[in-house]
């Protein structure tokens, strides 16, 4: 649409790139879907064309997953941890972001960037001392271990995201609320927060998906299968010895990935705005 007309060759090239990459990038998920519904005998037969159902589709793998594994338990753990991390993140990040956004001058901006940079500190740098901290707190091998530590990722990035939102609120609005009878804190609670719901929702989704995606801390701090999250439980504990239940494994991957992907997609543009560090106006 718009712009100069492209030659048919360029357009063809574009289509090839788009379709090629889409197929390649999405292929593992398609493969998960196929594997989920194939009968075991169909899966483990080198002679069979793996792209089609050589035997009737089956729900056996799903049945196994839900009835005989800890999958639902992991799912529940992830939800609980996710909700708790979201709550902690909001409580810490929303007020801090507002305070920073309203700090005028260079200092506020620099402090904000400083906080943002702490987001770059990776779990693989800290897992060893952090596991000590976790055990000092007496939280090892509980869901609390990750509930307490995950906000180290979510809080810095959320502060950064929310700063952007809060800065976009005209100062006049807050001043008007002060004149109209609110305290500064009242203006924050009754005006700034309601105006920023979409920003806060972005933080909620970001924090929740991070809990589902994180692998290293959960693997390090939690050692019993029943306290795990989906992200670790499925790839580590769904394998018995050397036996991979590929059907159930792929089913679990698919069931977990798709909802997260759908929700994340809705908020994608806002996350990206956070990542571009102001390099895009």
């Amino acid at each position: 649409m718009g712009g100069p007309r492209r030659s048919p060759l360029t357009r063809l090239g574009r289509w090839l790139i788009v379709i090629g990459f889409a197929a390649l990038l999405a292929f593992p998920f398609y493969w998960m879907a196929i594997t989920t519904f194939k009968q075991t005998s169909d899966l483990y037969n080198v002679e069979h064309d793996p792209f089609v159902f050589n035997a009737a589709p089956t729900l056996d793998h799903l049945r196994l997953l839900f009835r005989e594994t800890l999958f639902l338990r992991w799912f529940w753990n992830t939800t609980v941890a996710g909700a708790a991390v979201v709550a902690i993140t909001l409580v810490l990040a929303v007020p801090a972001a507002w305070a920073l956004a309203r700090l005028t001058g260079r200092f506020g901006q620099q402090l904000g960037i400083g906080i943002f940079l702490t987001y770059l500190v990776p779990p693989t740098l800290l897992f060893i001392p952090m596991s000590r901290v976790v055990s000092w707190l007496g939280l090892q091998d509980t869901l609390w271990a990750i509930i307490v530590t995950y906000p180290t990722f979510t809080v810095p990035f959320s502060i950064w995201l929310l700063m952007g939102f809060f800065k976009a609120i005209p100062r006049d609005l807050e001043d008007a609320a002060l004149v109209d009878g609110l305290t500064r804190f009242g203006a924050f609670v009754k005006l700034v927060i309601p105006i920023s719901v979409s920003g806060i929702l972005t933080v909620v989704i970001f924090s929740f998906t991070l809990v589902t995606q994180e692998f290293v801390y959960a693997l390090t701090f939690i050692s019993s299968a029943e306290h795990q999250t989906v992200g670790v439980g499925v790839p580590i504990y769904l394998v018995r010895g050397d036996v991979y239940y590929w059907g159930s494994l792929m089913a679990a991957c698919l069931i977990t990935s798709l909802p997260i992907a759908v929700v994340y997609n809705l908020f994608l543009d806002r996350f990206i705005a956070g990542f571009t560090v102001g390099a895009v106006k």
Binding site: D172, A176, A177, L191
Partner: peptide
């Protein structure tokens, strides 16, 4: 206010 500062 100049911008009216109506609560959006």
């Amino acid at each position: 206010f100049q911008s009216y500062a109506l609560y959006p």
